[in-house]
Design a protein around this nucleic acid. Sequence first.
DNA 1: GGAATATTGCAACTGATTCTCAATACAGGG
DNA 2: CCCTGTATTGAGAATCAGTTGCAATATTCC
Lengths: 152, 152
Amino acid sequence: MQDHEHKFAEYLAQKGLKLTAPRKYILLEAFKLHEHFNAEELYEKVKRVTPEVSLATVYRTLPLLMEAGLVQSALRSSGRDRYEHIYGHPKHIHWLCRSCGAIMETDLQPINETIAAQAKTIRFEAQDIELNIKGLCWKCTANDNENQPDES
Amino acid sequence: MQDHEHKFAEYLAQKGLKLTAPRKYILLEAFKLHEHFNAEELYEKVKRVTPEVSLATVYRTLPLLMEAGLVQSALRSSGRDRYEHIYGHPKHIHWLCRSCGAIMETDLQPINETIAAQAKTIRFEAQDIELNIKGLCWKCTANDNENQPDES
DNA sequence: GGAATATTGCAACTGATTCTCAATACAGGG
DNA sequence: CCCTGTATTGAGAATCAGTTGCAATATTCC
Ligand SMILES: [Mn+2]
Ligand SMILES: [Mn+2]
Ligand SMILES: [Zn+2]
Ligand SMILES: [Zn+2]
């Protein structure tokens, strides 16, 4: 049994809930996906393994995975909630290119200290940090310049 | 004419759009609200001044205000997009208490430098920075301790 | 195996946001 | 001031991600 499977079982047990087949498959597929995903995308993946699972169950399981600390919400996009699994993926910054939609990630560590200091000042117990930056990736910046080479 | 009204007029003109009465009232009310607001809340405010305005127009005007740099999206909550005006409100960190829903704000300045450095490394042109932190405010932390004074 | 409880798929529902469309306001040129 | 082409509007219909009720199933514990 994988580490995350173990953690999920533990969380469920402690809540008096059951680690059923649908839940297990949803967890497993969430950990096979290495990009951000929304509920429907996860559902599609799970369906390939167990076609009888329902989208509703995926929607119902996602909050459990989040509470268990196995999945976290990521940058919402085109009107849909998105998620990503947590597994040797320490908290990171998301950079979203407005032009091509690419998402880059960088380390959040460098600002953690500053945040901790501010948290202390306002006496806030931080549980979740989400830092999203929107703009243009280098490719799209380059393309923009091509189209408008002279902006004197 | 206020500063922001001016800026909106300018933006609209440059886009070949018109500064109509509904748009003006929506702008004005957005700037009278000093907390975060969603489309409907803004609509309610506007309706008190000009009852004939429609919710659809509020929804249509918000993107214009954002593109004009007068309003920005804030922490989404209970399934609704939220907004805040920008006016002597430099970018700030949002701290959301999961227990009581309170929102605190602190200065984003201290981490700007770090972000700029990372942006340079990945050659990303940052336009918008959103840093949201969820957890417990000091009041709710205190209440929690009251209820579970001994967690040996 | 059987009772008590949790879970599921399905379909209906909800509610925020977007869209359609016909009516209205507007700007600019005569 | 009138006319014409364009932008805007309110009202209501439509969309669609996410939620929920419910009867059928699965699981747990004895
Ligand atoms: Mn990520
Ligand atoms: Mn704010
Ligand atoms: Zn790009
Ligand atoms: Zn609180």
